[in-house]
Design a protein around this nucleic acid. Structure first.
Lengths: 343, 343
DNA sequence: ACAAATAGAGCAAACGATTGGGTAATTATT
DNA sequence: AATAATTACCCAATCGTTTGCTCTATTTGT
């Protein structure tokens, strides 16, 4: 099947067929014609001839031709892909990429990509660009920069200047969270989550300090960001002290574990202890109590990340861009004023 | 460098250059001209353009060498990838594939793959095999069979004979669930989830019937499998009747919504209503109450799916295999004996 | 009502290489 | 010396796509 044959069958010119197939948005074709063409395409299983395309594109045949593909790398360990926050982010990246005729060619985790035996599999088949999801160490970052032309970072933590990045400024977000708790009257606020190089932890500390509230070690539990982490961290916390009136979890998954641990002790949320976090994954509003959390515009973030990456691939911009997405606090049920009595 | 440029520099026609370079013995060129051409070729490092050659030759653009890659297709709508059940399954497939030196090249959703404009992106770059995750209609299935050599299905519902499949037999699982509830004394058991072509619904109905318990329409809420579905479905259910003493949700995500709706009405789980489901995603044990659910061995399932797919790609087996994974009921807190009083 | 803008579609020239069909010029044949 | 055969070339069509330009209806603005 060739464009010519399709054109004949559809009773239009080759150019029109080509434009329809390539979604050339500048020159529209009527809905009718489009449908007719797509019908034929599907029925005949037409596939564009790559050789002809590459030839026309004037690019090297096997070498440099744009693969029209990007990759997603889940950097946060372990297995960030199983966190709805990241899978939803990836999904919206994929959606936008498809819209722009790019395909999500790989998705892999940071652990895999550095494994020597799989290394060549990744670098052999090239992708035009890579989107990094979630916090990423310097070593991995420079590895990626070396092997891929275009890299964009997206997530909550920020990166050093020279990379494109689409963020939801997590220092600001955690500031907002802590301010909110302080506004409710809380001063004994615990933190359950990662602490090293974690902006949400930095925001927690700095905001407390700003209000002259001491950052107390016994209120801090350094655990991985997952439900189990939240659970264990809070258990440990409660074993040490019952003083705190609120717990800040850096993400919703962790907050789920935190809530469980609190409820398991027979304490009520928010009457005895308030719980707050950041992410707003879908299920946050179906937990009991409904989780008060920072709403991160995941879909928009993914869309922007894909857009920006593809724009750079296509030479649209050259200076590293840092795009900040707006957020807001979704106030639900898991926070209230601090209790008066000791427990 | 192109033939044209060489021709110009050598002061001969393009055809002559082409023939010299291809050593076309039928039409010789003078020794003089040949030398001149070869000199230019060597000096300029001329390489024939493969795309142009292939185009002219009418050959397939790229070879059929094994790409050592597989793809994941998330079939259940909408956006199954955001369900931890499926993302964890995908992750374990990826892990096993990497172990065997295969790479997960694409992951896309059923909606995307059928979109005509992105169609060729997918079929262009070939993968050795495709793993389908989650229930998949016949149309899509035959589409995939046509375009990919090797296809494996994995998920809870089963498929007609001729495909390789790795399952956790969901009819048996729901039977187990219902038997368990009946064993606790329940007879008024509601179902909140998809009903069409859904084996978990079939198992629900058949097991009730087996015990001579009527399947009551007002106990059934047909909703999509997600937290929101579970929530809305249960709200609707409770608006109709408060008779049921237990709710069966086909997956954990739905169960989360179910629990929320019940608790929002001021009812207790499991004292007033028991909730049970299938999946056992990580967070199931961190919900309040901890969710009693069928534990599906996700990691093993993914591993087997990848193994079986790759085995078939490598010619290891030829008859369609159907592999059933064992499951067990993870008894936690969300189920108890039926209440005695009305509510 | 008339000019200007725009949508929808087609023409034709590329991209680089191959090749059948020519056409001169050279050489061999009679 | 005229004819045939051979050698050494060149022209131009072709492969399947893409895309700037052109042309014609139709819509929009005034």
């Amino acid at each position: 099947m060739t464009l010519k044959e399709i054109a004949q069958e559809a009773g239009v010119s080759i150019s029109t067929v080509s434009r329809v197939i390539n979604q050339s948005n500048s020159r529209a074709a009527s809905k009718e014609v489009q449908d007719r063409i797509w019908e034929i395409v599907r029925r005949t299983n037409y596939t564009p001839n790559t050789s002809a395309r590459n030839l026309k594109a004037g690019k090297a045949p096997s070498g440099q031709a744009s693969s029209h593909s990007i990759a997603c790398l889940f950097a946060r360990e372990p297995d960030a892909i199983t966190d709805p926050f990241f899978s939803q982010l990836a999904r919206s990246i994929e959606k936008e990429a498809f819209k722009q005729n790019y395909i999500l060619k790989y998705s892999f985790t940071a652990i895999d990509i550095q494994h020597p035996s799989t290394f060549h599999l990744i670098t052999d088949n090239h992708v035009d660009g890579v989107a990094i999801l979630g916090r990423c160490n310097k070593q991995l970052l420079s590895f990626l920069k070396k092997h891929f032309n275009y890299v964009i970072y997206t997530g909550l933590n920020s990166l050093n200047a020279k990379y494109d990045q689409v963020l939801c400024e997590s220092i600001l977000a955690s500031e907002h969270v802590i301010e909110y708790l302080i506004g409710l009257g809380h001063t004994k606020i615990a933190y359950v989550g990662e602490t090293q190089n974690e902006e949400r932890y930095i925001g927690y500390c700095s905001t407390l300090s700003k209000h002259k509230i001491p950052v107390r070690n016994e209120f801090i539990s350094n655990v991985m960001l997952c439900s189990e982490g939240g659970y264990r961290g809070t258990k440990a916390l409660l074993a040490r002290t019952h003083e705190m009136t609120a717990v800040f979890a850096p993400n919703d998954l962790t907050a789920i574990g935190v809530m469980r641990a609190i409820q398991e002790e027979g304490l009520r949320i928010p009457e005895d202890i308030s719980v707050i976090s950041i992410d707003d994954i879908d299920m946050a509003q179906y937990l009991s109590p409904m989780l008060t959390t920072i709403h991160v515009p995941l879909d928009e973030m993914g869309r922007m990340a894909a857009k920006t990456l593809i724009d750079r691939i296509q030479g649209g911009h050259h200076l590293p861009m840092r795009i900040s997405m707006p957020f807001y606090l979704a106030v639900r049920e898991s926070c209230g004023p601090p209790r008066k009595n000791t427990i």
